[in-house]
Nucleic acid binder design. Structure first.
Lengths: 347, 347
DNA sequence: TTTAGCACTCCATATTATAGATTGCTAATC
DNA sequence: GATTAGCAATCTATAATATGGAGTGCTAAA
């Protein structure tokens, strides 16, 4: 479906105006303000047509128009202009990004907080899907006489650890053996592979110690299948938006935030950039999520999602995301994840 | 301030009724329902007096009464009867608590989720204040050539770990030395002690390696001073309560949830049990928090807080808390946190 | 093709009226 | 002296009605 140039300008103007005012946009209100050199009557005709084609909606017969899901979709895909950030915003972001970080997790937190602050929307972040990552090393460490910590290091620099408990004492020699066997078999493999087949393989390798292997495999499997870490900031910000005043939308919004699986599904896509516009069918009517894969110095730090009303300021959100990502990549020396390119010791 | 027996019964009836109906309670509505053998006129007289003494309030001149903060306070402190849980609730709780857990953190999560499900209120949990805990062991593990993981085990069985990065390679021998030195000095000490004086002590012990010690101390200090883990469940549940419909209270409520420091301050008290009733002064008007120190098998697993409207069902909340705690303590064998107090730093 | 003009629709708000709930007080009763 | 019936007074909540204004769609002229 293509639109002629004037229709596009009008649709763009309506969406912008609606994002600004949160009120149905009338034909008259566009004249003058958006440099359309035609009369309100002409705009009315065009609006009627845009409505017929499904880009606009009316709240009642004599009201102005609001964008439909399809209208937003078109706007986001074709009509979006990036906004220049204000000097204050730039300053604020830069000041936030300057803090030293030791783990990529921290960097994601800082970015998430900053985005929420600057955009005034609720922001979530999940770490990259663990199952898609390759194991670079597994290390078992004895803690107490019946407890082990397993530390898994991935090639992307993510570190995951878990505690494993046993019914009887274990000794360092056994731990050393575990280290050798697990690393031999699993180094370079995808994390998702730690599953039944490998369990059986390792058990056969160490058949004299099934009661040692089993809890380990169980616990590691659990760790991998765990929900990825989800970090959330600014849940209350949503309530700043008038459309949440009624309570119904607020409730649906908070319910959404409680459903980690759902958020993960949306964030875990392969796009670098995605705008997910809620509608009746997908159960997210009136809500939108902008997702952004935060890649810094070639490393996937996870996906960030900004959740707000469908009428959210997409331009601003996207501008902020891009700016932050650009800044993070500027200082390419930010040691992240592996101890090799590192720098942050005192000394 | 003491109240005679009938006034108590009336106050109790009013609070119960208000919790049930969320509407100002009239003198007439109590008759019959609460076994007060007097007329509504008598109740009216008593109510007028209770209002004069500050236990009740009116929304307007000819409305029924609602409890004041002082009224709730008295109710919670003196008039609260525990409720019997329904069979369904008991079954549900038991089914939830049966899942095997490996770390106390998981147990807290399960308890928190269950409480939120059963009470229908928002529930938060924080782990016990790290600074008040004693170190049982510190362990450094080499990960890669320039990266160390520090694992701190406390006597209460909490395990904290952090990553430390270095500018240059370190070897296993150095790590062994670190293990000895740190354990010698810190075993049995409070976590809060890891601070400047000890930094200097350790530095003098290992003065040949300042560039090794400094990042470790920095990172561990950071770990300890980190906000304690805060786990939150059912933020959207609050919105089920009609008093949140207006939006104002909902916003204040969500704002509260975003302020970890504030929640921590409230939860981090020394009481086993506490009901925090919001009022004008403390900025939590119309909100209440029930806090409960969850001690299982003698171990402090942290504090759980149930946040809801002042008109929350205290009886139920407290009954659920006590029941869950009782069940957790029943199965005293739930090996938690310790791998059998012994230790074994074999190499 | 565009636009001025206008009847028409519908909302939002204010106004008024009405019914009902509840109190406080008074005077009667136990 | 404590309790209670009875009742006027108060205030809310709801409905019914009226009014002004914003915005559209359509028609006919430019």
């Amino acid at each position: 479906m293509e639109l002629d140039s004037r229709k596009k300008r009008i649709l763009q103007a309506i969406v912008n105006e609606y994002i600004d005012t949160i009120e149905p946009v009338s034909s008259g209100s566009l004249i003058g303000k958006y440099g359309l050199d035609c009369s309100s009557a002409t705009v009315r005709n065009e609006m009627a047509e845009l409505e017929r084609e499904g880009f606009l909606e009316k709240t009642h017969t004599s009201s102005g128009r609001i964008p439909s899901s399809k209208g937003y979709r078109f706007y986001v895909d074709k009509l979006l202009n990036e906004k220049n950030l204000t000097l204050n915003e730039v300053r604020y972001i830069n000041s936030k990004l300057q803090s030293k970080v030791n783990e990529m997790e921290e960097l994601t937190k800082i970015a998430t907080n900053t985005i929420s602050e600057v955009t005034h929307y609720t922001t979530v972040a999940i770490e990259p899907n663990a199952k898609k990552q390759k194991i670079s090393e597994i290390k078992f460490v004895l803690i107490g006489s019946r407890m082990l910590m397993a530390i898994i290091l991935t090639e992307a620099g993510i570190i995951k650890e878990t505690i494993i408990k046993f019914d009887r004492d274990i000794n360092q020699e056994q731990v050393d053996t575990l280290n050798v066997i697990f690393n031999n078999k699993l180094k370079g493999q995808y994390l998702s592979l730690i599953d039944l087949p490998i369990e059986q393989y390792i058990m056969s390798e160490m058949s004299y110690r099934v009661e040692l292997i089993k809890p380990i495999i169980n616990q590691i499997t659990k760790l991998i299948n765990d929900e990825s870490n989800l970090y959330l900031k600014g849940a209350n910000r949503a309530l700043d938006n008038p459309e949440f005043k009624t309570g119904d939308l607020a409730k649906r919004f908070l319910g959404l935030l409680d459903r980690r699986d759902f958020i993960e599904d949306i964030l875990d896509n392969d796009e670098d950039f995605n705008v997910y516009i809620g509608n009746e069918e997908n159960g997210l009517k009136d809500l939108s999520i902008v997702t952004f894969k935060n890649i810094v110095a070639g490393k996937d730090l996870g996906t960030i999602g900004i959740i707000g009303p469908t009428r959210m300021d997409y331009s601003k959100v996207i501008s902020v995301l891009k700016y932050i990502n650009k800044e993070l990549n500027k200082d390419i020396n930010r040691s992240l994840g592996d101890g090799k390119e590192g720098n942050n010791s005192g000394g």
